[in-house]
Design a protein around this nucleic acid. Structure first.
Length: 448
RNA sequence: GCCCCGAUGGUGUAGCGGUCCAUCAUCUCGGUCUGUCGAACCGAGGACACGGAUUCAAAUUCCGUUCGGGGCGCCA
C-alpha cells in the first residue's frame, strides 16, 4: 500500500472537540517541520487550514519518525492518526500519527517559498503559480472570485435570464475599434472574439428574451497596465422589451448580490485579505457625463488636443481621461453610474437619446476611477442601425449576419458587459488585475 | 505606440569605480535540543542578465540586446 487509496476524512479546519480521541486521515502539504531531536512538529496544510502533527520518537518506530522529519517542505503527504487534545498546541489539539505516506516529494530548494518571510516578485509568482496558489491569501482571491460568478449567475437566473454561450472564433471584427487576435481556421482567416455583443443582441430576435453569458473575451491591444488583460472574463447580459433603466436595475441587483454573498460566504477570505466590505445601497448614484465635464473644467483639467497637439481645457465631447476620473473619485470613491454620454463616444449599437441626438442612452458603471461596466439601450430599428454602422465607418454589408436579425421583428432591448476580473479586484482589494486570474495573459505572458 | 525605472545566490535585497575571492535576510544541507508554532543555537553552501566599450582597475560608468516593473493611451 502506498497511500494512494487513502481518503481524506476531514479538513484541518473542521476538526473540533467532538473529534478528540478519534482517528482521522488528513491530506495536504508539509508547510514546515520543526525537528527538536526526540520530538518533531509537522504543520500539514490543506485548503481549509493547518493541522499540527506531533511525532515523538519514544512512542513510534524509528523508521516512521525518520520519515516524518525528513520530508521536504511542500511535499504532498497523507497522515493517519489520532486527534488528541493538547493544551500546548495552538489549536488545542494535535495529530498523533501512526501512519504517514509521502505521496509527492517536493524538490529542494523551492522556486518560490510558500511561507517564507520574503516576498516574491509577481513574475516569480506567476512562473510558479501552482506554488503561489498554495498561499491562503492567494487562494482567498479565487474562492471569492468563485462566489462572485456564482452570485451573478444566481440573480440572473432568478430574474429569468437564460445562460448562453456564443462563439469565440469569429470571421469578422464584431464591434470595430479594438484589435483582434488573428488565427487560422482551416483555409480561412478567423479571429478571437472581443465580445459577445453582436451575438447576444441577435438573441433578442429569437424569443429567449433575457440572456446572459459568462465567458472569455480577447483583445489584442498592447495595453500594459495593471487593469488590462488580453484574455478576460466578461459577464454579459441582454434583455428584450427593456430600456436603459431596466438593465441598470438588473446591474444593481447583480452587484448587490455579489457583495452580500461574498460577505456571507467568504468572511474568512475577506479577513485573510484584510478587506472590509460594505454592501452598496440601491440605487447607485447617477452622474451625467455633462456634469462631470463641468466639474473637471472647474478643476482646471487640461487635455491634449488631437488636432493641435496642445493642451487645452476639457470640453463637452471629449473622452474623460483617467486623470479626470481620478479627480471625480476624490468625491466618489465607490460605485456610481455615468450616464448621458455623447453619442460620438459610444459604439454604433448604442441608442441615441430621444431628446437630443448628440447624447446617447449608454452608461458606464465606475468604482472610483475604475471602469467596471459599459452598457445601454440598444439601437433596434434596422434603418437606424445601418445608418449608425455607416457613421462609424463600418460597412453594413460585412455585418449582414448581425443586421439580418433586425429585419424580421427586433424588439427594443438593452444590456451591459461587466469585467469579472475588475469586479474581483475591487472586492478583493487586489492592486493588479493579474492577481485575479490564475494564468493571466498580458502583452508578454503566454506561459504558463 | 509613448514616457520613466530596474535586472546581484533557489527567493527577496545591500553595495553604485579600487577597501567586494560581494551585505543582510530567507532558503538548502549537516549538527544540538521532548513542546515548537517567525523556534533557538552551532557549522556549511549558493549570485553580479547577455554582448561590446571606457579605465591601470567595472557589480558599479557608457552603448546595444533580452527580460521585467510603473505610468499614459485604449478599454471591461
Amino acid at each position: 500500500m502506498d497511500g494512494t487509496d487513502w481518503k481524506r476524512t476531514k479538513f484541518a479546519a473542521d476538526i473540533g472537540e467532538d473529534d478528540y480521541n478519534t482517528e482521522v486521515t488528513l491530506c495536504g502539504w508539509v508547510q514546515y517541520t520543526r525537528n527538536l531531536g526526540k520530538m518533531a512538529f509537522v504543520h500539514l496544510r490543506d485548503r481549509s487550514g493547518i493541522a499540527q502533527v506531533t511525532a515523538l520518537s519514544k512512542t513510534m518506530d524509528k523508521e516512521l519518525f525518520d520519515l516524518i522529519v525528513s520530508v521536504p517542505r511542500e511535499s504532498s503527504i497523507s497522515v493517519k492518526g489520532i486527534i488528541k487534545q493538547s493544551p500546548q498546541a495552538k489549536a488545542g489539539w494535535e495529530i498523533i500519527p501512526y501512519q504517514v505516506h509521502v505521496l509527492g516529494v517536493a524538490k529542494t530548494p523551492l522556486p518560490l517559498g510558500v511561507v517564507d518571510k520574503v516576498d516574491a516578485d509577481m513574475e516569480t509568482r506567476l512562473d510558479n503559480r501552482f506554488l503561489d496558489l498554495r498561499k491562503p491569501e492567494i487562494q482567498a482571491i479565487f474562492k471569492i472570485r468563485s462566489t462572485i460568478l456564482a452570485a451573478a449567475r444566481e440573480v440572473l437566473l432568478e430574474e429569468g435570464f437564460i445562460e448562453i454561450h456564443t462563439p469565440k472564433i469569429v470571421a469578422t471584427a464584431t464591434e470595430g475599434g479594438t484589435a483582434l487576435f488573428e488565427m487560422k481556421y482551416f483555409d480561412k482567416k478567423a479571429y478571437l472574439n472581443q465580445s459577445p455583443q453582436l451575438f447576444k443582441q441577435t438573441m433578442m430576435s429569437t424569443g429567449l428574451d433575457r440572456v446572459f453569458e459568462i465567458g472569455p473575451a480577447f483583445r489584442a491591444e498592447e495595453h500594459d497596465t495593471r487593469r488590462h488583460l488580453n484574455e478576460y472574463t466578461s459577464i454579459d447580459i441582454e434583455m428584450a422589451y427593456a430600456n436603459l433603466e431596466d438593465c441598470m436595475d438588473i446591474l444593481e441587483m447583480v452587484i448587490q448580490r455579489v457583495y452580500t454573498n461574498v460577505l456571507n460566504e467568504n468572511f474568512i477570505d475577506l479577513d485573510i485579505l484584510d478587506q472590509h466590505l460594505v454592501a452598496p445601497e440601491r440605487p447607485f448614484p447617477r452622474l451625467r457625463y455633462g456634469c462631470i465635464v463641468d466639474k473637471l473644467q472647474n478643476a482646471g483639467l487640461k487635455i491634449k488636443d488631437e488636432n493641435t497637439g496642445r493642451n487645452r481645457p476639457i470640453e463637452f465631447g471629449d473622452d474623460i481621461p483617467l486623470e479626470g476620473f481620478k479627480e471625480i473619485a476624490k468625491d466618489r470613491p465607490s460605485l456610481y453610474f455615468v450616464t448621458d454620454w455623447p453619442m460620438k463616444l459610444k459604439p454604433f449599437y448604442i441608442h441615441p437619446h430621444p431628446d437630443d441626438p448628440d447624447l446617447s442612452l449608454g452608461f458606464d458603471l465606475n468604482y472610483g476611477e475604475k471602469e467596471l461596466v459599459s452598457g445601454g439601450q440598444r439601437v433596434h430599428e434596422p434603418a437606424l442601425l445601418k445608418e449608425m454602422l455607416g457613421r462609424s465607418g463600418l460597412d453594413p454589408e460585412t455585418f449582414g449576419f448581425y443586421t439580418k436579425a433586425f429585419d424580421y421583428g427586433m424588439p427594443p432591448h438593452a444590456g451591459w458587459g461587466l469585467g469579472a476580473e475588475r469586479l474581483t479586484m475591487i472586492i478583493t482589494g487586489a492592486s493588479n488585475v493579474r492577481e485575479t486570474v490564475l494564468f493571466p495573459r498580458d502583452r508578454y505572458r503566454l506561459v504558463p
